[in-house]
Structures are given as structure tokens and as C-alpha cells.
Simulated scan of single mutants.
Amino acid sequence: MFYNEAMSHHTYAMRAIGRGSSSNDVSRFDRLSRTEEDDGWDAGEPLAPLRTEVSLEVPRRIITYNKSPDLPFDRSINAYRGCEHGCVYCFARPSHAYLGLSPGLDFETRLVARPDASQVLQRELAAKRYRVAPIAMGTNTDPYQPIEKDHGITRACLQVLSDTGHPVAIVTKGTLIERDIDILSDMAQRGLARVGISVTTLDAKLSRLMEPRVPAPKRRIEIIRRLAQAGIPVRVMASPMIPALTDPELEAILTAGRDAGARTASWIMLRLPREVSPLVQEWLAQHYPDRAGRIMARLREMHGGADYDARWGQRMRGSGPYAEMVAQRFNVAVKRLGLKTAGSPMRCDLFRPPVLPGAQMSLF
């Protein structure tokens, strides 16, 4: 193989079996692109599938703050960069460009773990200027993606939050969260924890195509059941809803979540920021060419003719007749099912800053 300045989608597609994206275009910050071209020397030899690579990072800070009025939290923790789940629609893919990596296949195969995250979290919570408020986990990449089994960073951070009486809200698709039911159930009893489980579709075949390394839909419903049985407040998250593909399942998803024990529900329309749009359009052309045009037309109707509108109040659900129709369907369904759209506030009065090694302990 040799390299030139254009990407070979065919080459990557052959190596991307079991991945969400089938291409690896360079990030928006790179001036040059590269490709693999067949020079004939290895003709007939199968191309090796892409393997997951994990590098380590020592973060200076682990809590990220935001001022978005669209979000119900102002701070979050992400133990990993990139996500092996490989959801083709993931709005976080463009963040990989800041690492000099592609939001395509790099995002799901070249991951970054932050093993010192729990120690850094302790330092930040111990700072005199810190003021407690619920911390969100899973806002950018899934805290319970497969590599958590080996690294255990999410559990370590969760233990710090439990020990300090700090409230946490988690969003995940991963079954590994069941490993941490011991910590989460104890926190839930103290009003310190709640979990959102994202269910995009109940169709196992569709799920495997667009989120290839995520637990099957039935398994995610079972996660809701097991968490609820442990006394942990659970939200069923019907997101993202994809027009003419998954949004017909909205009511069925909410019903399945409620029947499994979810107390609250939410929904978000498909978002296509930056590099996500071409990735999703490529995926649609490959798997659903008969409705790709209709899906994109609906999305553009909701965003003023553009693939995406990043303005606050617009980016999560869009606007116009189609967006309003989906919102109405959601409202009718949650009322009929007895679901709520907001849970009880979590407690912040139990927080006690951690005592760092070498620090003088409080006498009171």
C-alpha cells in the first residue's frame, strides 16, 4: 500500500466490518488528507479488520462546565474520548477532530482513556471554590462502553462521588452499568443518583446497523428493569429520533421503557453537527437508499433548509410542523403512560469535600 491525498472509501469500508462509520475522512482542522491505494503487491490477500486502540491521557481537569440553556446540568465528567459503541449518528464525533483524529472510524477505533480521572476529580471536589451541583456522566461519550471493563475509570469516579455525597446523573447504553448497581442503589437511596438509558429503536437489525457495538434493544430494556428493581430512578430516552426511520417507534419505545420500570422519559431529534452529516448521509445511502432523500428533507425542514442548526433552543428538536408533530406525540404518550418528563431534584446538602492525602482533617 502507498498513500496519496484522497480518501479511499472502498478500502475503509472493507476493513470497517462491525463499525458504524465506513470512512475515515480527516478532521476539519487538517489541510491534507490521505488514502490507502492498492499497488497490486498484496492482491488477493484479505485486509485486516480495524482493531480498537486505546491510548492513555493524564488530564489536568476532569470536570467540564457549560452554560447551555438546552441542558439540565452545568457540569459533566467524561472518562473516555471516543466511543467503541460506534453509533453512526453520535453528535460527539466532531470532538475527535480536536485530537487530530477523524470523527469517522478513528472516533470508534482510536480511543483515549483517562486512568487518573478519579484522583483529579477528588482534587477538584476538594477545592475551596467548588460549589456542589449534579454532575452528568455520559454526555459526550458512553461511560460504560466496552473498554470500561478493563479500565474501571467510571466506577472509580462513581465511588468518589458516593464517598463525598455528590449527586450524579448518568446516560448510557452499556450493560456494564449493572456492575455498579451496588454503588448506584446506595446513592439512589440517599437521593444522589439517577440514570438515563438511551433506546433508539426496538428493531434489533436496524440497531446493529447504526450502533453496531451497542447492546441489543431488548437488552437495554432489561437494563432499565434491573436498575429500577434496585431502586434507581431510570429515564427512558427515545433518542435520537430519525424521521421516517425510527420516529414511528416513539410510542413503542416509551411503552417498553415504562413497562420495564422507567419513571421519566425524554426525546431528542437526530442532530447532524459538522462531520456527522456526511457520515450519516453516507450510511443512509449504503443501508437505506430508498428513504435517504426523505429523511434528509425532513431534517432540513426542521433546520431552515440546513442539515443542522446549532442555535440554543433549536438544535435538540428543530422547529416546524414535523418537529411539532413528534413533540405532540411524545406529550400524548407520556401522559397516557403515566410517565413524567422531570424527576425529583437530587440532594446537594449531603456533599462533604474529600480530604486529600496530607491535608488536615476537619474536627467537625
Results as ranks from 00 to 15, higher is better:
332 V>E: 15
234 V>D: 04
141 T>Y: 11
82 G>P: 03
313 G>L: 05
307 D>T: 10
78 N>T: 10
220 R>H: 09
152 G>I: 05
160 V>G: 02
247 D>P: 04
201 T>W: 09
322 Y>M: 05
51 R>E: 14
205 K>R: 14
229 Q>V: 03
355 V>N: 13
72 P>M: 13
113 A>I: 06
260 A>F: 10
234 V>K: 03
252 A>Y: 11
201 T>Q: 09
232 I>E: 12
147 I>D: 05
260 A>E: 13
294 R>W: 01
337 L>V: 01
62 I>F: 00
360 Q>E: 14
184 L>P: 09
196 G>Q: 10
250 L>R: 08
54 V>W: 06
166 H>R: 03
205 K>H: 14
217 P>K: 06
201 T>I: 08
90 C>M: 05
331 N>P: 02
2 F>L: 08
56 L>C: 05
206 L>A: 00
63 I>L: 15
134 P>A: 02
227 L>R: 02
92 A>T: 07
262 A>S: 12
8 S>I: 00
175 T>D: 14
33 S>D: 14
256 A>S: 13
169 A>H: 12
26 V>Q: 01
201 T>D: 07
292 A>P: 02
296 M>I: 06
219 R>Q: 14
349 D>M: 05
78 N>K: 13
159 Q>M: 04
269 M>H: 14
156 A>G: 00
168 V>Y: 00
303 H>L: 00
347 R>D: 03
143 P>F: 00
11 T>D: 13
173 K>G: 05
31 R>W: 09
107 F>R: 00
190 R>G: 06
77 I>S: 08
230 A>F: 05
145 Q>G: 01
168 V>P: 00
204 A>L: 09
305 G>Y: 12
317 R>F: 01
31 R>Y: 14
26 V>F: 01
52 T>G: 05
318 G>N: 07
254 L>E: 06
288 Y>F: 15
224 I>K: 10
88 V>T: 04
96 H>E: 09
94 P>Y: 02
309 D>C: 04
76 S>C: 08
116 D>S: 15
172 T>V: 10
255 T>H: 04
226 R>D: 09
217 P>W: 07
166 H>C: 01
94 P>G: 06
91 F>P: 07
281 Q>H: 12
218 K>F: 02
76 S>G: 09
153 I>Y: 02
215 P>Q: 06
356 L>F: 04
274 R>H: 11
237 M>P: 02
52 T>H: 13
4 N>D: 12
261 G>E: 07
72 P>I: 08
25 D>M: 09
135 I>R: 01
